[in-house]
Amino acid sequence: MQNSHSGVNQLGGVFVNGRPLPDSTRQKIVELAHSGARPCDISRILQVSNGCVSKILGRYYETGSIRPRAIGGSKPRVATPEVVSKIAQYKRECPSIFAWEIRDRLLSEGVCTNDNIPSVSSINRVLRNLASEKQQMGADGMYDKLRMLNGQTGSWGTRPGWYPGTSVPGQPTQDGCQQQEGGGENTNSISSNGEDSDEAQMRLQLKRKLQRNRTSFTQEQIEALEKEFERTHYPDVFARERLAAKIDLPEARIQVWFSNRRAKWRREEKLRNQRRQASNTPSHIPISSSFSTSVYQPIPQPTTPVSSFTSGSMLGRTDTALTNTYSALPPMPSFTMANNLPMQPPVPSQTSSYSCMLPTSPSVNGRSYDTYTPPHMQTHMNSQPMGTSGTTSTGLISPGVSVPVQVPGSEPDMSQYWPRLQ
């Protein structure tokens, strides 16, 4: 039975679970980093996980050691009161100082060594604690504590007292930064006198190289990059290397530039699409467009005044059976039934097929058609009795279509119309 579990990581490298990497692998990681390889490249070359490479390099940059820390136990506290007071002093002298600059000053002034120097995250935590204590304490208590930490007896009751030896409130920041720059020169002199001055200088240079600022491109470089971006948004590694040799930039910087440029292009394309949609959409909808001609068919113009009344309900007709019959029939052209047409008796099958359309009241044959006459024609229609054979009435077949029909004066039988409509 094995005491430890061995495995293979996602890159194909072998590791022992819970145990640190061998010293030979750690040394190779540092050597590759000094030669300029990126952590992701080191991870692929040595088949070590990216997190492990970053952790080893980060500890090497901070402490200069590649040895693993002790497994188990607690780390001794490195942010001692003396170190905290120095950090507060540096922050007062130059409020814009960075944590890694404070760390360098602690090393250069001999406050800490490589073994007990606090990390950048520890210094940031100390600065946050100082800021929170400043908010919790009152103004007087804060000034007393700062005077105690600074070891001075001057008056701290006013704002300019934060910067000793100065009279203009805006000047101390520059003086403090100048003092810090002077301390940086002392850093070089002190570290050069040490035993491991060369190694420390190499480590600091490598650290500065990794902690780079934003790349500033010249106009020629920007023009070359934009020209390549117009050709393709995704250049391959050969195109990037050719462009890197042409404009004297690292291939990694060119790759990052193209990634950022593609993101910018997507944002601009989104804005262009929004403007295009806004320009195509009308600002207001016309009133006429809300009524579609496919839904509402136009009603033909009436030929006679009587045809303006298109349904039985508008003429005072309360018989719903006839109203439904007229509205359900398709529109037909106007025609006239003459008196000489043969009077065919209704076929029983045809009569039964339209039995649902006729009223059940037996008085329908005896009703006159003056009910369908509009009010303004009552006088004219009353002067001509319906009993004469020459009287013409208008029957409504569908809305908007008038059918003048000659009705025999002897017997106005409704059943004569249905064979004609089939």
Rank of each mutant, 00 (worst) to 15 (best):
M137C: 15
S85R: 12
F15M: 02
T63H: 04
S49E: 00
P22V: 05
S122R: 01
I117G: 09
A70T: 10
K91Y: 03
K91Q: 04
R19P: 01
R128I: 03
K75S: 04
V8R: 12
S108D: 14
G7S: 15
V48I: 09
S65P: 02
P76A: 08
I97M: 15
M137E: 10
P76H: 03
I97H: 09
N9A: 04
R147H: 14
G12E: 03
K28S: 08
G12A: 00
I66C: 07
Q135K: 13
P22H: 05
N124E: 03
V14K: 14
I42A: 01
Y143C: 10
P118Y: 03
L106F: 05
I102S: 04
H5V: 11
I87V: 06
F98S: 05
S49N: 01
P22W: 01
L11Y: 13
R26N: 02
G72P: 05
T25N: 03
G58T: 15
I71M: 13
L130K: 15
G13M: 01
I117W: 15
E93K: 08
R125L: 05
S74R: 10
S6C: 14
P39T: 08
C94Q: 12
G13Y: 03
A37D: 04
R59V: 07
F98R: 14
G18F: 00
L46V: 09
D144S: 13
S96Q: 08
H34R: 12
S49F: 01
F15W: 06
A88R: 08
P95V: 14
L21Q: 02
L127S: 07
G12L: 03
Y60R: 02
L21Y: 07
L127K: 15
K91V: 02
Q10K: 15
R105E: 08
I87Y: 02
F15D: 00
Y60T: 03
T80G: 05
I102V: 04
M137Y: 13
R67M: 09
N114M: 11
F15L: 03
G141K: 09
N50M: 10
C52H: 00
A99L: 01
I66S: 06
V84F: 02
G7M: 12
K145V: 11
C94W: 10
S4N: 11
D41C: 04
P81K: 10
L21R: 01
N17I: 15
S43Q: 00
W100I: 06
K75I: 05
A79K: 01
I56S: 00
A88V: 08
V48C: 07
G141D: 15
R69A: 06
H5K: 14
G36C: 03
I123G: 00
R77M: 04
S85W: 09
N9Q: 04
Q89V: 08
Q136W: 11
D115V: 13
G58Y: 14
C52W: 00
I117F: 11
S96H: 13
I29A: 01
L106E: 03
P95E: 09
G138C: 13
I87G: 02
F98D: 01
P20M: 01
T113Q: 13
R38S: 04
V14L: 09
D144K: 13
S74P: 03
G51R: 02
M142V: 11
Y90S: 08
S24V: 11
R92N: 10
L146A: 12
R147D: 10
L21V: 04
G7W: 09
N17Q: 15
F15C: 03
I123T: 05
S4Y: 12
P76M: 02
E133C: 10
E82C: 09
V14F: 11
R128M: 00
N50K: 15
S85F: 08
V126C: 09
S65K: 06
P81Q: 08
E62V: 10
G138Y: 14
A33Q: 08
A131R: 15
S121F: 05
V84K: 11
G58D: 10
N114W: 08
I102K: 00
V16I: 12
V53F: 00
Q135T: 13
A139G: 13
G7K: 15
A37R: 13
G73L: 02
S121L: 00
S4T: 12
L21K: 02
E62P: 00
I71E: 01
R147C: 14
I45M: 14
C94V: 12
T113C: 13
G58M: 14
K75P: 02
R59M: 04
I42G: 01
S122A: 00
N124W: 15
